[in-house]
Design a protein around this nucleic acid. Structure first.
Lengths: 339, 339
DNA sequence: TCTCCCAGCGTTAACGTTAACGTCGATCCC
DNA sequence: GGGATCGACGTTAACGTTAACGCTGGGAGA
């Protein structure tokens, strides 16, 4: 007796036997490549469907030594930012026949590396990473393997392969200069702890520079953890030293800014008369408020779409621009005003 | 000359040759299964790392005729609801060694089916779907293949395999009874068009029943498309016929309710004096408002965690409960009041 | 009419890994 | 001391698919 295993699933072989042709004819028919007459192809495709044949991507990946999987790593989906980016990407990749192997890293490079190792074992067609700073070993490996890699959200002159994003330092600078020009001189910042969200750190650097340029006092910094939620914003505001009399508070993102604004009002402060509030991202929320939050709109969906298209071009053997820097749009809002 | 292909990647074979052992010894060493002495194992693992060996999951999947991939289909990530569910699941599955192949269907069963077909080609260990209504052909196939399938968010007595969620009809009923008991009799509902979000339709049915039970007039229904965002809520409120004098408006979700409340106030209506506002989900936002939105908290993260754990039990050959119904918590808020 | 080409199909050998079974000493026990 | 047992490894044959190349018959061109 033969000792092999045996599966009840039917493969290309079974279809071939039933159709009375070789398995290559079946393979060619199903893939739609040349070398089969139309009559034969139609007969085989119909038969395959009738027999309940389903292709096995693992076998295909093994045979062609790559796959139609694309790995996507995002820091979090708990704010709208990366959900927007993702929805922009997914559709484009989907239509091109790629599946996404996803994870969220919670801003932890080690988790990103672990996920990447697991994902690379599937020999993906490409990897999409958030930001331009990664575990050194991972970066080295990706460079060595010459895998198509798209880095999103941030830009750098020295990407692993290609990158599409915004200039966070410049975004912080633009936003802060606008606010500084209105006369604010006692700024504070509520965001992630230093070193966690590196893009936020860049924006903070922009703030610092803009206020230093106008001779303002240093930017007070409050760090909150636990997501960019409304509650974190309110909590962050609560941690501010109000005796220090800040005249404007910048938040990591609009949702936090709204939370902070609610906390300010609860504390008896009027916005913007007593204190200015500034967000980041230009989320939906800001537009429905009677007093829209001052913020800067980031092209999140566009980053996703452009990123995916650029990556597809790369996968098709073209040589797209390695660095795409997309513009942000200042939204003056009404939570700061001329002092 | 041999005509085969040749890849430069190094496999288990190369390591075996370099170590002077058979490839099975390498395989066993790397997988950590019995049958190798500790000394040999350590020598081989070290050598493999030095040589830059990386496992090939596609080959493994082919050999064992299944994989460590889990497919996850969600309707959208553009509101916090499914992002919460997902983050609850991912960590648990991640720690058990599974990777996620994800997609969002935008509530379209056809897209869910297409994604599922593509994903099933990878012979995933399990599938996670949202809701309990799917393309009939897909459902039939999943039943036939006896694949572990977890359905989340909604519950049914007849799941494909196992399901973890809440009773949406009951949630709608509970919420509406609370509101009806306060004296409201002219309800309206702003949500998705009928037939799109089937869970929302269930909740709506709960509303209808609760208000019919107290002899109120029928629930006016306004449908909006384009995400559950703040803007959609504001737009939906704008579509209400105010001459019809609704006394309370239920929204698909809290964020929409907030958008609607802003629109109401912009229209000169005071909440809750002139009109009541009711949300759904108990999102973060509602807790930071000076006037918290009346809503019902859904155990989103818990659904993710419990779902993942139940699925893992199933994958480990246990027989967990097929149906897990989790409780919701009414949050009275202050956007309705006794009339 | 003969050659050449090509459409249409088949044969063989990978792709990298694991399951199943075989082998061979060393230890153990009566 | 001889058979049973077991730990540590090896051999072989899958898993399902595709790349590379081989074969064949019929029609076009000379």
């Amino acid at each position: 007796m033969p000792r092999g295993r045996s599966t009840d699933t039917i493969g290309i072989n079974d279809v071939a036997r039933a159709a009375g042709v070789s398995l290559m004819t079946v393979s060619r028919s199903i893939r739609g490549v040349d070398g089969v007459s139309d009559a034969t192809r139609q007969r085989i495709v119909r038969l395959a469907r009738e027999m309940g044949y389903f292709p096995n991507s693992a076998a295909r990946a093994l045979a062609v030594t790559n796959s139609t999987l694309i790995g996507i790593s995002l820091p979090t989906l708990l704010n709208d930012v990366f959900a927007d980016v993702l929805s922009g990407m997914r559709r484009t990749l989907d239509r091109a026949g790629y599946s996404s192997v996803m994870d969220t890293s919670d801003y932890d490079p080690a988790r990103e590396r672990e996920w990447a190792e697991r994902t690379l074992a599937w020999r993906p067609a490409a990897l999409i990473l958030t930001g331009t700073t990664h575990d050194p070993a991972l970066r080295a490996r990706l460079l060595r393997e010459r895998l198509p890699v798209l880095e999103i959200w941030d830009v750098t002159d020295d990407p692993i392969d290609i990158c599409v994003g915004i200039d966070h330092l410049d975004a912080g600078l633009t936003l802060a200069r606008h606010v500084a020009a209105l006369g604010y001189r006692r700024p504070a910042w509520v965001g992630a702890p230093p070193g966690l969200d590196l893009r936020a750190d860049q924006r903070f650097r922009g703030l610092v520079r803009a206020f230093r340029d106008v001779g303002a006092r240093e930017v007070r910094r409050v760090s909150v953890t636990g997501g960019n939620s409304f509650v974190a914003g309110a909590g962050g505001f609560g941690q501010l030293d109000l005796r220090d009399r800040p005249d404007v508070v910048f938040f990591l993102t609009d949702n936090m800014a709204f939370g902070g604004m609610m906390a300010a009002q609860k504390a008896g402060l009027s916005v913007p008369d007593d204190i200015g509030i500034v967000g980041f991202n230009g989320l939906d929320l800001t537009t429905v408020l009677p007093r829209p939050i001052t913020t800067i709109r980031t092209p999140r969906r566009q980053i996703g779409v452009t990123g995916a298209k650029t990556l597809l071009a790369r996968l098709n053997g073209l040589h797209p621009d390695a660095v795409t820097r997309l513009p942000c749009e200042l939204m003056p809002g009404a939570t700061v005003r001329m002092r």
